[in-house]
Design a protein around this nucleic acid. Structure first.
Lengths: 103, 103
DNA sequence: GGCTATACCTAGTGTTACTAGGTGTCAAGC
DNA sequence: GCTTGACACCTAGTAACACTAGGTATAGCC
């Protein structure tokens, strides 16, 4: 998968996995890999800044935990849930559009 | 539709419309708008540079015509046809991946 | 002790759709 | 004739963002 084609879609994906279960950053990467069947093997340099951006936008909230290893666990906020809905709808429109032209 | 989410997908869309019929730049914009039901209303500053890039990459070829107005008509090349196939396959993989995670 | 997987971070890069301008032609309406 | 709007082309600069390439540190296993 080439890097650019993910642009604009990453935030929704992260919101989707975190909405199911609060996760720390590294676990988000694992979850994306697993749920995509290995297709989404994102580097940390992609995911961590995205998490910070989502938190700055108030769509995620984070908390440091220390059960053994120090981890920053992210949960989805109300606004994040709402934005996830918007992302899903936007994806429907977008994919229908591409499908109509490309195929 | 937000601008970034198109990134990495535009080239395939242009190849798709030009593969059906040779078109000049302005007509490519119209064709994309029509085939997408109005969803893809791309500015000229997006499409013209993309056409130049595709020609530089050998995926399109252009010819100036003068039947009334001066127009630059683009046709798809053999390499362009092949790349269009790759784009379609890449889209299938990509959309399946997003679908798996997002929904 | 050394190694691997886990876990976090960020400064800088590259690509690319878009903005905001520009030039010129043609047809229709006044 | 003149103006307006659609047609038709172009490009320099901007913004956004996934990614590269580094860095630090801990836990568990051999």
């Amino acid at each position: 998968m080439k890097p650019e084609e993910l642009k604009g879609h990453l935030d929704g994906l992260i919101l989707a996995v975190v909405s199911q279960e609060s996760l720390h950053g590294y676990a988000v990467i694992e979850a994306l890999k697993q749920r995509s069947g290995g297709a989404l093997a994102l580097p940390e340099g992609t995911v961590y800044p995205a998490l910070h951006r989502l938190e700055a936008d108030g769509l995620l909230r984070s908390e440091w935990t220390q059960a053994g290893r120090k981890r920053r666990v992210y949960s989805i906020t109300k606004r994040g849930e709402k934005e996830l809905g918007v992302s899903r709808e936007r994806w429907r429109v977008f994919s229908a559009t591409i499908e109509a032209v490309l195929t």
